[in-house]
């Protein structure tokens, strides 16, 4: 319990310990703590930013989808319109074609009729001449009356 040099020794020891602690222990530990605090804060900020960006992206995506939907429906409408147009066009074309074919056929029929009529006329003329020949064997000279006969044939 005597007060002696230990007092001074203890004071010096204490001072040295404090100096060592201040110089070599406190700054690195506090530095690490501070750096970690900053890192965590940065991480949190980054996370928040990411979330915000995600929200924006979602909003943008929704807008894109809406736009695309609009475009798609527009395209569908156009396509339907075009399809009906094509159908109408085809209908018109087919009608024209049918008309043309019918007209052609009619003309051919007409021609056929005419040809048959001509043929028949010639046959009738031939028969009439043959008949007349038989009747008028001698009196009618084929050469003299050819003009008359042709005239007759043309009138038939």
């Amino acid at each position: 319990m005597n007060i002696n040099l230990t007092l001074i020794g203890q004071s010096i020891t204490f001072a040295l310990f404090v100096w060592f602690c201040m110089r070599f222990i406190w700054p690195p530990v506090m530095g690490a703590l501070e750096a970690r605090r900053k890192q965590i804060a940065d991480g949190l900020a980054a996370a928040e930013r990411g979330q915000h960006e995600q929200e924006l992206a979602e909003k943008r995506a929704a807008e894109h989808i809406k736009e695309a939907k609009g475009q798609a429906s527009e395209i569908v409408t156009q396509a339907q319109k075009r399809a009906s147009e094509i159908v109408e066009e085809a209908k018109g074309d087919a009608k024209t074609e049918a008309d043309r074919i019918v007209t052609g056929a009619n003309a051919e029929i007409e021609q056929e009729i005419n040809r048959a009529r001509e043929h028949l006329r010639k046959e009738v003329v031939g028969l009439a001449i043959a008949g007349a020949e038989k009747v008028l064997k001698r009196e009618v000279d084929k050469g003299n009356h050819a003009a008359t006969l042709d005239d007759l044939a043309a009138q038939l």
Binding site: I3, N4, T6, L7, G9, Q10, S11, T13, F14, A15
Partner: peptide, 12 residues
């Protein structure tokens, strides 16, 4: 428990 130690620190 040695007053020298505690006084040493408190005097510093």
């Amino acid at each position: 428990t040695d007053p020298n130690a505690t006084f040493g620190m408190s005097l510093a």
